[in-house]
C-alpha cells in the first residue's frame, strides 16, 4: 500500500516514515497541500491513506482535506490529521471536514505506532 505523509517538516515526515517502515508501506512524502495533489496525480490516486499536518505553507492541511473530500477521484482516501492544533474545536473542525483520525503533536513513538495501526 502507498501512503502519503504531508508535513512541511522533513524531521516530522521522517519520524512518521520510520514508524511505518516495518509495515512494508510505500511512503510518498509531500511538503504542502499542493504537493499532496501533485503526488496523487503522479500515482493515479492509488493511495491507501494520507497523513496530514494542519499548518503548512501555502495550502494548509485543512484546506487540502476539504478539497480532497470534494474531489470525486480522491474523496474516499482516508485522511489522518497529525497536528499541533490540539484544541477540541480544532479536532471537531477536522473531523467534520472528513478527517478519519486525529493525532496531536507531540507524541511518543508508541502513540504514533498505535495511531497508525488503528488507522490503516
Amino acid at each position: 500500500m502507498k501512503v502519503i505523509i504531508a508535513d512541511d517538516s522533513k524531521v516530522m515526515r521522517n519520524i512518521i516514515q520510520n514508524a511505518m517502515r516495518p509495515m512494508g508501506t510505500e511512503i510518498i512524502q509531500a511538503g504542502s497541500g499542493q504537493e499532496v495533489f501533485e503526488q496523487l496525480e503522479i500515482h493515479g490516486g492509488k493511495v491507501g491513506a494520507i497523513f496530514m499536518d494542519w499548518n503548512m505553507p501555502g495550502m494548509t492541511g485543512l484546506e487540502c482535506l476539504k478539497l480532497l473530500k470534494k474531489n470525486e477521484k480522491y474523496k474516499d482516501i482516508p485522511v489522518l490529521m497529525i497536528s499541533t492544533e490540539s484544541e477540541d474545536d480544532k479536532v471537531s473542525i477536522a473531523r467534520e471536514a472528513g478527517a478519519k483520525g486525529y493525532l496531536t503533536k507531540p507524541f511518543t513513538n508508541e502513540e504514533l505506532i498505535k495511531f497508525i495501526n488503528s488507522s490503516i
Partner: peptide, 24 residues
Amino acid sequence: AELIHDGVAEIVNMIGGTTKKDFV
C-alpha cells in the same frame, strides 16, 4: 544543519501548540 533547522521549527511549533490549548 537542514534537519536541525527543521527540527527546531517543529519544537517551537509543538510548545506553542500545546500551550495554546491550556489557554482555551
